[in-house]
Amino acid sequence: MDDVIVAFAGTEDLKNDAEYVFIHAFAESLAEHGVNVVVHPSNTLGKESDRFDQTSQGLIAVNIGNGGVLMKASKWSSTLFLPFLTSDEASFDRIVEESDGLAKINEEASRLGVRVAGFAMRGGTLGLFNTEKPVTTLADVADMRLRAQNGDQVTFMSAWGAKPTVVSWAETPNALQTGVATGHFNPPSTVVAAGQVELLNYFTPLNAGPVPKVIMMSDDWYSFLSDEERGWVDEAVARGIEVNRAWALEQAPYFEQVIVDGGIEVTPLAEGEREKFVEASRAVWNQIVPQEDVDYITQFTE
């Protein structure tokens, strides 16, 4: 079997990089069958949209991408990324397992020659970081200028009563320093990886869901493998995901400790406030994805 080309955005850091944890285990598993994996880290083969495109053409065999780029190719995939759809990795995995979500995504993505093999978890769950004040209630968020990643985030942040403003991730540190934005919606692991610990002052755990990175494979590449080789690859993906999940569980408290050590105060929500966030967010789910998809996916959330 030829060398397997793998690309991702992060660095080859087994301690802190969730995607590399997956890739490393994936590569080790394939190595048992004498298959060599060539890793292109740090966006060297291009940014998200480029790597997606190269996967689509079979130039990259396995790409770890973000949710945003998948949504460009599969509208349905937004459903899995709805805020407060799940609270943690286990419940996310269960929804993927029990629903036909992945099949729906792959039906859309297959038009572009890409299949989603699963997800690599960033570790920890989504919460609210800010520079301004301890947030413990939904009312505290009112009129806060939150950095939104995209229109979907604008929608649910507005529903919380905040004033979202779209800022690209590259400009977010400056936006925080200068007050263009005073907070954003992310897990501690992302803040640590981005080196933003010193910039932020408060973190409110919302348990709004895990942060899944998308493991995509080239259809061309996969379909040209022999049955035996495909078995190796499936096994390697399963092994990578398994190691990633164990890492994510173990690592979540570590990231929380890093932000606390870095001077960020953790301010948990007051009694009954998470329900208010959930309610406000759910009320606008159908503005992000069609109502029928909302209805479909909520069958699996209870």
Binding site: G68, K75, N150
Partner: peptide, 8 residues
């Protein structure tokens, strides 16, 4: 043809 812009 099959990919859409992110925010519209």
């Amino acid at each position: 043809l099959y990919t859409t812009a992110e925010s519209f």
